[in-house]
């Protein structure tokens, strides 16, 4: 027996994404953002996307290309303060923005990847983030019902992958990638390194390949991945 090979080209993997898709994007700032997959989304002109991402990157980088190209309908995000384009698009009504507490977004995604329907939490009670949300009482406590999130597609950045889709990550480039890599119908991974089956020790695997659909090796690490001069 041998494990199946899921390597493909980025063009082919992204071509299967329909207009109107709900797309999760890994990344917190630069580390872990799948910049090359985002460029391919823009190049293929996928429209009316709902994007779920921790942050809106900065102007001229990553998710900003989707905003500038007018391809994003809605952004579910925890913070977009570093991208003036995103704030302008939100204020002018060109994109709808749903703000979520950071750990609650991560946990809703984790729950989606774990086949759960929702989480219960006291985070955000008595703030405006609780407005319009279902509240239940359990063991004498008021709790918010935060629905689990799954997406049509997750675009993931890994440091290393094997052809079956077993993944490892580096440093703070993990962030939302591991939970998102479990929470979509179609999981597409760009990887800096592709090693043969067995090239990642089973003990070192962080995302099991079972969750992954497509592996796209990066042919170059563009400037966008680099250290930002501040």
């Amino acid at each position: 027996m041998s494990l199946p090979d899921k390597t493909t080209t980025m063009e082919e993997a992204v071509a299967a994404i329909p207009d109107g898709a709900v797309v999760m994007l890994g990344g917190f700032g630069v580390p872990g953002t799948p910049f090359t997959l985002i460029h391919e989304l823009v190049r293929q002109g996928k429209r009316d996307l709902t994007v779920i991402k921790n942050d809106a990157n900065e102007a001229g980088m990553g998710v900003d290309h989707l905003i500038v190209a007018g391809l994003m309908r809605k952004l579910i995000v925890t913070h977009l303060g570093l991208n003036a384009n995103a704030i302008a698009a939100m204020n002018e009504g060109r994109i709808k923005v749903e703000l979520c507490a950071q750990g609650i977004l991560a946990e809703r995604i984790r729950a989606g990847g774990a086949g759960l329907q929702a989480i219960l939490t006291d985070i955000g009670l008595e703030t405006e983030l609780a407005e319009g949300k279902q509240v239940i009482e359990m063991a004498g406590k008021r709790l918010l019902v935060e629905p689990a999130i799954r997406a049509d597609v997750a675009l993931i950045h890994a440091d290393c992958a094997d052809p079956f889709g077993n993944l490892t990550y580096l440093a703070t480039a993990r962030n939302f990638n591991p939970p998102m890599a479990m929470a979509a119908e179609r999981v597409i991974v760009e990887t800096e390194r592709l090693v043969p089956l067995g090239g990642i020790s089973p003990d070192a695997v962080e995302t099991p390949g079972v969750f992954v659909d497509h592996i796209c090796p990066l042919t170059q690490i563009s400037e966008e991945y680099g250290v930002v001069r501040r």
Partner: peptide, 24 residues
């Protein structure tokens, strides 16, 4: 290191004993 920032975007370094983990 392009993969190692704090939440404010500053480039930081690890110490002996540092750990990394996902957002969840």
């Amino acid at each position: 290191d392009r993969n190692l920032i704090d939440a404010g975007g500053a480039y930081v370094s690890p110490l002996p004993g540092t750990s990394y983990f996902d957002s969840a």
